[in-house]
């Protein structure tokens, strides 16, 4: 866009507003995490009366945060890997093959995005229990159950985005690979996947974030040994005191990995969206 001078001022004002809006809660989170307890209990203050790192020490004792962290990490990583793998195959199929039921599949998968979680929370839980009783594969209360659930949550969006992305990759590329003696799978893995890596990264980030932040299903489907951060964080305010400084410190600690990863990968995300969803 070609800009006149006044537009620069519009940009400055607009971007300042957006920055303040986006950052104020982050500022509150960071400064509150550095405050001693009285600072967060009596009135708001912009800056700690005394900067302390004690909340960051205390959070590990108040609730078993480290255990929750490990659980979240395992569940989210496994869900992401599985979701991306399955989505790559599914999206490739939709993008490159014609087969009976293709439309039905696409529409059905996408429409699951609008299912209210409340509707199938209890049924899903009962299903998991029954599968456990019938086959011995323990889905309820286990990490495996959460992994299966979360990977399915991100699957529709992942497939849909990757279909768009794969469509944008010239078909000649995989045909060349086929001619070189690769099977369709080989063509996918050696040619299409590398070419689609920004899209795949974008999908992976989305899948990881979905799993890392889910609250509702985690609250019913985990027990003490498998509890994730999203549920575990509530432990700071259900006891006989609300340790706001610790809540903020813990929020910060659990946010850092995702935010860092997200920001690190954001260029792929933009590139992925450009070619995928945007098409």
């Amino acid at each position: 866009m070609l800009e006149p001078h006044w537009f620069r001022w519009v940009r400055r004002v607009g971007l300042t507003f957006l920055t303040v809006f986006a950052m104020v809660p982050v500022y509150v989170m960071v400064t509150s995490a550095l405050k001693p307890l009285p600072d967060v209990q009596d009135g708001f203050r912009w800056w700690p009366s005394r900067v302390t790192f004690q909340p960051f020490v205390d959070i590990w004792d108040t609730v078993p945060l480290a255990d929750y962290f490990v659980n979240s990490l395992i569940v989210s990583t496994a869900a992401t890997v599985c979701s991306v793998t399955i989505a790559v195959f599914a999206a490739y199929t939709i993008s490159r093959h014609s087969f009976r039921g293709r439309r039905v599949f696409s529409v059905t998968v996408l429409s699951t995005q609008m299912f209210p979680g409340i509707l199938f929370l209890l049924p899903l839980f009962l299903l998991f229990v029954n599968i456990g009783n019938a086959t011995g594969v323990e889905l309820y209360g286990s990490r495996l159950g959460l992994i299966v659930t979360y990977l399915t949550f991100s699957l529709p969006f992942a497939i849909w985005m990757l279909v768009g992305y794969f469509d944008s990759i010239p078909r000649d590329l995989d045909e060349a690979a086929l001619v070189d003696g690769n099977g369709p799978i080989g063509a996918l893995l050696r040619v299409v996947v590398p070419a689609a890596s920004p899209g795949i990264v974008a999908v992976a980030v989305y899948a990881f974030m979905t799993a890392w932040g889910e609250v509702l299903f985690a609250s019913v489907m985990t027990d003490e040994s498998t509890r994730t951060l999203a549920v575990g964080l509530q432990g700071y305010s259900t006891q006989n005191n609300v340790y706001w400084n610790q809540v903020m410190a813990a929020s910060l600690v659990v946010s850092v990995p995702v935010v860092a990863g997200f920001l690190f990968l954001q260029r792929y995300l933009v590139a992925g969206l450009t070619a995928g969803a945007v098409k």
Binding site: C82, S142, R143, L144, D223, S225
Partner: peptide
């Protein structure tokens, strides 16, 4: 096969059931 990918996790949590 897909399920196998994550089967390492179930052994720990099954015990409490």
């Amino acid at each position: 096969l897909a399920a196998c990918g994550s089967s390492g996790d179930e052994s720990e949590s099954g015990a409490s059931g």
